[in-house]
Amino acid sequence: MANLETATPPARKAWRVPSYWPFVVPALVVVAGIIVFPWLFTIWMSMHEWKVGAPTTFVGLANYMRLPTDPRFVEAVGHTVTYTLLSVILPVIFGTFAAVIFHQKFPFRGFLRGLFIMPMMATPVAVALVWTMMFHPQLGVLNYLLSMVGLPAELWVFHPGSVIPSLVMVETWQWTPLVMLIVLGGLSAIPSEPYESARIDGANAWQMFRYITLPLITPFIFVASMIRMIDAVKSFDIIFAITQGGPGSASETINLYLYSVAFVYYDIGYGSAIAVVFFVLIVVLAAIMLYMRQRLHWNQTGGAA
């Protein structure tokens, strides 16, 4: 034992790094096959005129040049921006509020938190199906609820003007819990000292929230916003199952348009170009997220669970 200890350290140090490789190899193979290969192949296809069943020809960047002149794509970008912006802001506001509530102590808190996160775990298509029924202008329960408080009936997802806000409502219902969980993690990391001294100085509840809590949870709210942004940009299931981009193309986001181009019109080359541009757009957002996350690391050392 003593012998081993004195003899091995240099040798073990030298072998430490390479000898963990076998653990990673299977994952490398899978990641290469299902993540790296598809990406390289997509870039390759995006530079070709490539329709299913027809011969392919190299066209360079022509597919990319087509994007700004495609009115449907430009329109889809607009829808995506509106949809994303609303789907970040609303869940972040409600989620932060919910986190502050769940940070208090009250009976059945664990159970109620379980109920609260159900919307985000439930199968999106199943949820979308029920929302579609609730949106029904004549028989839907939502218009009945509106009439109970004296508001006029809405057309919800059946009118171009109200379709995106209605879908955002579903998205907000679904993803507010994730924001809540992230912000709740931030709240539980706050020490109690600042509140004690503030109370001695005579601060009221709002002042304590505004000047102590909010600054301390801002990094968490920011991370939640970034994650929300990434998910909202590529939101698909809810929109596809409820409206399929309609009525007309009023709720067609980039992701929905990508689906049509690739799997309805089978224009693989152009679809690949959209996929690449779409990805670059999200990466720019994610890069911001990563940057913020690294900065956040310093603040987090207090130890969120």
């Binding site: 990641v31 299902i34 993540i35 790296v36 290969f37 598809p38 990406w39 192949f41 997509t42 296809m45 990434i230 590529k234 698909f236 992701n255 990508l258 689906y259 690739a262 799997f263 693989i268 679809g271 690949s272 996929a275 779409f278 990805f279 999200i282 990466v283 957002l285 994610a286 990563l290």
Partner: peptide, 20 residues
């Protein structure tokens, strides 16, 4: 790589893998 997988829209994998 995990992050890239996390942020890539599912549809982007579908085009190449569908052909494959």
């Amino acid at each position: 790589v995990v992050l890239i997988a996390r942020i890539t829209p599912g549809l982007s994998y579908l085009i190449p893998l569908f052909l494959l």
